[in-house]
């Protein structure tokens, strides 16, 4: 393969330190390697790892925003259990990514609607609803490939919609309203080409994942540690995801009931990233039905319900996989699930 080596972009120290993710080896291949033919139906190590750079951060309403960019990526959209590959378009200059989180708890908000409007000298050059995506390095974020109008200064407005996901605990009543923030983006193709790109032929296709990005001022979409969750009863694995199950004596604030609260917290293997926007059903005791997608300040994003008389065990059955687009290495995982049994 014809490779060209680029010097690491100098960049601004602040931005690089903030993102902490421009530190990979700078190797620029002429093109992306093909997608592996015999990928496992599970999480796998991708064919290449690209660096990204922080564009900036902003605040609006209840939300904090981070904006990053990288090379255009191939990714897979998910509708129901079907994946559709989006290839890199000829007009695409960057993969632009936004992350949304709560400044108080530093929890990533994985299930909002988000749009990006990119303007240059007041004129719109890009405006789209940007899909939630799941990547090994960041977990849930929002991303799209975008074409720009050459080197120059852009204004990127990140707009988030009010959440309809149930919110509980300290999140009750929060994230109701839409908000936006505008972040300056000085783009140049040479700076983009200075971002790292490492081919990983030795590990590609291995059942493993790239380490999460270590971003000092910005959280990744990591699920709470199992040890940090209250009253965990057990866990099970299906579709290559781990489902941690717990029961609380009473539900989190915001749910008006006095009975047992059953929660299920699914996460990716290796990196422990939250898996949002699923349908998860459960059966225990007299309860047999859908769990409610819920964002809680302590339990994190989870699936939960009030159960009047739980049995000795619970059967957990995910029926709709996470409706998030997938970066390479996640597109064959978390798509189909078998029922799981966990003792309570």
């Amino acid at each position: 393969m014809n490779r060209r080596t680029f010097l690491q972009a100098g960049g601004t120290l602040g931005a690089a330190a903030l993102a902490g993710c421009s530190s990979l080896i700078s190797t620029q291949p002429a093109g992306n390697p093909p997608v592996i033919g015999d990928r496992p139906a599970a999480v796998y190590y991708p064919t290449h790892v690209e660096g990204m750079d922080m564009v900036g951060m902003g605040e609006g309403g209840d939300y904090r925003f981070g904006l990053m960019y990288s090379y255009p990526h191939r990714f897979w959209n998910v509708t129901g259990s079907d994946t559709t590959r989006t290839s890199i378009g000829s007009g695409d200059d960057v993969h632009i990514m936004a992350s949304v989180w709560d400044g108080e708890t530093m929890q990533v908000l994985p299930d909002t609607g988000l749009s990006l409007t990119i303007r240059r000298d007041g004129d719109i050059v890009f405006e789209e609803v940007v899909y939630p995506m799941l990547s090994q390095r960041m977990g849930t974020h929002y991303g799209a490939n975008a074409g720009l109008a050459g080197d120059g200064s852009y204004e990127v407005t990140v707009s988030v919609g009010g959440m309809s996901t149930r919110r509980t605990g300290a999140f009750e009543g929060r994230f109701e309203e839409p908000a936006s923030a505008t972040i300056e983006f000085d783009y140049s193709q040479s700076a983009r080409d200075g971002l790292s790109r490492e081919l990983t032929p030795d590990r590609a296709g291995e059942r493993a994942a790239v380490d999460p990005a270590n971003m000092e001022m910005m959280p990744t979409g990591t699920a709470p540690d199992r040890d940090a969750l209250p009253d965990v009863r057990g866990s099970a694995t299906s579709g290559d995801a781990e489902f941690v199950v717990g029961t609380l004596d009473s539900p989190p604030a915001g749910i008006d009931a006095a009975s047992t609260y059953l929660y299920v917290s699914p996460r990716t293997p290796y990196n422990q990233m939250t898996l949002p926007a699923m349908t998860v059903e459960a059966a225990t005791g007299s309860f047999d039905g859908e769990l409610t997608r819920t964002l809680d300040s302590e339990l994190g994003y989870h699936y939960g319900t009030v159960v009047d008389s739980p049995g000795d065990s619970v059967t957990v059955t995910p029926t709709v996989p996470p409706q998030t687009a997938r970066h390479e290495g996640y597109e064959t995982a978390f798509l189909g699930f078998d029922p799981m049994e966990v003792s309570l």
Binding site: T112, E128, V320, Q323
Partner: peptide, 23 residues
């Protein structure tokens, strides 16, 4: 919004009529 609550396949502005394309 009621349909986004019924199934995660219908999102706030995705697969939800033409909301993805109008601002």
């Amino acid at each position: 919004t009621d349909l986004t609550e019924a199934t995660p396949v219908i999102r706030q502005r995705v697969n939800n009529g033409i909301l993805e394309y109008i601002f």
